[in-house]
Simulated scan of single mutants.
Amino acid sequence: MTICKLIENFKNIKIAVIGDLMLDEYVIGKVERISPEAPVPVVKIQKEKFVLGGSANVVNNLSTLGVNVICGGIVGNDINADKLINSFEKNVDTSLILKCDDRPTIIKKRVLAGNQQLLRLDWEEEFHINEKQENKIISNLEKKIKNLDALILSDYDKGLLTPSLSQKIIELCKKNNIIVTVDPKPKNIKNFIGASSITPNKKEAYLAAKKSFQVNIDIIGKELKEKFNFETVLITRSEEGMTLYDENIHNIPTYAKEVYDVTGAGDTVISVFTLAKAAGATWEEAAKIANAAGGVVVAKVGTSTITTDELLETYRNIYYNGEEIC
């Protein structure tokens, strides 16, 4: 299938994202003096903003590409939960989100002056979901699963994707022939045995395999695939591009001309990688499309998304020397 037909098919795809939802807030100002009360800078606030963070950024990436998205996770029963939920686009179904009284919605607030981050304030509780919450998520997912083309597990190690819940979701997807991809934290790699694919960065891959950084990366990729029964493994490698491990090894060079900020790049990669596969690409084609998407977002400042026009233009420039392909 051509890239043009794949992108045209995006609007027909439905993907669920289950993971650790959070808001990234920014307080931006300038420093002109030190406080007389304590030896700390006084920040004169000029602007405040917030963006969707954690797995909510994965949702945001997909919805920007026109995908019908179902969002799942846990938030507090507070005003920040409403702010997060109301920030999603209209093509996002939030019916898999649980509101709970025993924890706040996760907020990461950064205080910035000029180009300097002065302070970060976190609102979060260390927790693991209980059996009742787990059963509710699975019950709600079972009602949606027949209509899905793929599911993404976005793990920020905040207590949602426990071994029990992760395996129940993966088994439910496999039973219904649904693609399930994972952006895992290395310490939790065992939670995701049997998933279709994982998308760690190079450092995360080494940590997940518990190997020295001197070991050849291809050994790491193949070992992760075999040990944890993944169909494929996609390792992102910064300036070295990315490598896909299926029955073979596919090295995909990076084409990012400028790198301003890698924040959220992993969210974009797993979003586009999964979406392209669900839309009809092979795993290798999906990796190449995700590589193009990653090259776009690292040239933007802050957690970013990509449009279908940007994706098509970048893909055309990389693989077809800018020639018209649609």
Rank of each mutant, 00 (worst) to 15 (best):
D246Y: 02
T303N: 11
A281D: 04
G294W: 00
A299C: 09
K257I: 14
E310C: 13
S271Y: 05
P253M: 15
K277R: 15
M242Q: 12
S238R: 05
E247T: 11
A279Q: 06
Y315R: 03
I289V: 13
F228L: 14
G241A: 11
E285P: 05
L244C: 07
T254V: 01
N229A: 14
E258R: 11
N251W: 07
S304W: 05
Y245L: 00
E313L: 12
G241Q: 09
K288H: 13
I289G: 04
V269H: 12
T282R: 00
V301A: 07
G264V: 02
G266P: 11
N251G: 00
G295F: 08
Y260F: 14
T314E: 15
Y320T: 09
E231P: 00
T307S: 15
E310Q: 14
A286K: 10
T236N: 03
G294P: 04
T314V: 13
Y245T: 06
A279V: 07
S271A: 14
R316H: 04
L234A: 02
Y319P: 13
Y260R: 10
G302C: 06
D261N: 09
N251Y: 14
G295R: 03
T232E: 15
A279K: 07
K257S: 13
N229F: 11
T268F: 08
G294T: 10
L244V: 06
D309M: 11
T243F: 06
Y260I: 09
D246V: 07
P253Q: 10
D309S: 15
S238W: 04
L234N: 00
P253L: 09
S304C: 12
V259T: 13
I306E: 04
A278D: 12
P253K: 15
A299M: 11
K300S: 00
F228A: 10
Y320K: 15
N229E: 14
I270W: 11
V262D: 06
I249W: 08
W283P: 01
A290D: 03
T274A: 13
L275F: 06
K257H: 13
L275R: 08
E247G: 15
V301C: 00
I235P: 04
V301D: 03
V272N: 05
I306W: 00
A299E: 14
L244N: 07
A293I: 00
N291P: 05
A292T: 09
A276V: 05
T236E: 02
F228H: 14
D309W: 01
